[in-house]
Design a protein around this nucleic acid. Structure first.
Length: 195
DNA sequence: CGGAAGATTTCT
DNA sequence: GAAATCTTCCGA
């Protein structure tokens, strides 16, 4: 079952936690790829120095975050990699959830080709990697996740514990880098490795 | 228009 | 530990 609009209207931290264990799906002409979301980070626009939309900064890049939840926020980082976020909360509240890692469950051969890597644990264990494996690019910026190309669905898997940790690679944000807004499925082997 | 920095990955 | 590599944003 595809997640409905209402699911995305909660705040960023809550959405980050509730997206764990759900399945991200991308349908392309090459085929369909799916992965269980095992790692997320919340970015809380107004108060979060690490967020692109800090102090409600509106730019060409962040404008999608001002819509209500349920859209894809995708940006390029370091000139080489894309990262995918899910927009959270109501209109004019710019919060989002970065999808940091997936456990691949479908389209694995396609992922291996795109990544040019045969190691299952290297396909989606990081925000840049999973976008490459699922062929998520700026073409998908602003896509409505309630439609049929890129979306998230329910998954009936095993029960799991959620672990909260500090977010990665945002030392520049000072105090905000201490917030425990990174969430992972405890003991899952597909999470990205923190240095 | 120029300059600086980055929500990463990969290789040494 | 450091390079790769270029878009995005901001200030002038």
């Amino acid at each position: 079952m595809k997640l409905k609009k209402e699911f995305y209207l909660k705040n960023g931290v809550e959405l980050a936690k509730s997206l764990l264990g759900k399945v991200l799906v991308h349908e392309t002409k090459d085929g369909i790829t799916k992965g269980i979301i095992v790692e997320t980070e919340a970015y809380m626009g107004e108060i979060d120095a690490a967020a692109h939309s800090y102090k409600n900064k509106n730019s060409k890049r962040t404008e999608i975050q001002f819509k209500e939840g349920g859209y894809a926020y995708i940006y390029m980082i370091y000139g080489m990699y894309y990262c995918m976020n899910v927009v959270a909360n109501q209109e004019n509240i710019c919060e989002s959830v970065l999808v940091r890692a997936l456990e691949p469950i479908d389209g694995i051969e396609i992922m291996k080709q795109r990544r040019r890597d045969k190691n299952l644990f290297n396909l989606c264990s990081g925000p840049g990697k999973l976008c490459q494996a699922m062929n998520i690019t700026k073409e998908q910026y602003g896509i409505d996740l309630c439609k049929d190309q890129l979306y998230i669905e329910e998954f009936e898997g095993k029960n799991f514990d959620i672990e909260a940790t500090k977010r990665l690679n945002i030392e520049y944000a000072k105090d905000a880098s201490e917030y425990l807004w990174r969430f992972i499925i405890k003991e899952n082997k597909f999470v990205s490795k923190s240095k």
